[in-house]
Amino acid sequence: MAPDTGGLTLDTAPKPSPAADASPGDGPAVRVRGLTRGFGGRVVLDGIDLDIRRGEFVALLGRSGSGKSTLLRAVAGLDHGVAGRGSMDTPEHVSMVFQDSRLLPWQRVLANVVLSLPGPNARERGRAALAEAGLEGRERAWPHELSGGEQQRAALARSLVREPELLLADEPFGALDALTRMRMQALLLRLVEAHRPAVLLVTHSVDEAITLADRVVVLADGTVGADVPVDLSGPRESASPAFADLRRRLLSELGVTDAPDEEAPA
C-alpha cells in the first residue's frame, strides 16, 4: 500500500502498488482511498474513495472536466509527476484500452497484440485473442488497413490476451459511429464475461453505462457524487421503464434536468 502522506501540500503522485499483501481471492480488486490530484494548483480529484470488486463492471460517468480521466489515469499509474496524494491498491495485471486504438502503425496487427506479452506461445495466444475479437485472418494487416471498429477490436484483443485482473477503458468507443459502437459494446460484454476481469469504464454516455455496468459511479466536483448499482433484470432494453428511470436519475446526478426519454446517438 502506498503511504498516505496526509499533508496539506500536494506531493508527487504515489505510484499504485500491486496488492502484494492481499492474497488473491479476498478483498476488492481495486481499493482507492483519499485520492487527490491537482493540476497547477487546481484540485481535480478531491479525496476519492472507490472500491471495485473482483469481476465487477463499474462505469464512471461525469461531466467533461469532472476528473474521470484523471482518476482512470491515476489507477493506471500513468500520471507521472502529477501532484497528489492518497492510497491505491491495484492488481498486478492491469490492461488499458484508450479512446484511440493506439496500435503501433509500424507493427502488423498480430505484433501489436503480442507486444511485450510475457510467457510462452505468445503468438498463438495472440492469434486466439484476435479470433475471439472477430479479427481472424487479419493478423498480417497493417493497422491503417483496418476500419476504426476493427482497430478497436485489435486493441481489445491486445488488452485481454494479457488476462488482466483489471481492465481500464477510457471512452473506448467514443470515436466510433453509433452502429459500430453497439456491436463493440456487445463484444466487450462477451469478452468480459469470458475473462472475468474487474472493469473500470470511463464514458460520457449514460446509456452505455447502464447497458454495460454492474454499478455506475458519477463524479462531480472531484468527488463521488453518486454510486448507483444497476439492478435491471433481463435484457437491458433502453426502452424499458426501469432503464428509463435509471437514466433519468443518472442524468439528474449529472446536472441534466430536462432529460430526454432517449439519449440521442452521439
Binding site: 493506471a76 500513468l78 492491469v94 484508450f98 493506439r102 503501433l104 507486444l115 494479457r162
Partner: peptide, 19 residues
C-alpha cells in the same frame, strides 16, 4: 501516446527501444 501505451503494457527498455 505510444510511449504511454508501452508503459501500460509493462514494456521493458530493450523492447521499447526495438519496437
Amino acid at each position: 501516446r505510444y510511449v504511454e501505451l508501452a508503459e501500460t503494457l509493462g514494456t521493458s527498455r530493450t523492447a521499447f527501444l526495438a519496437r
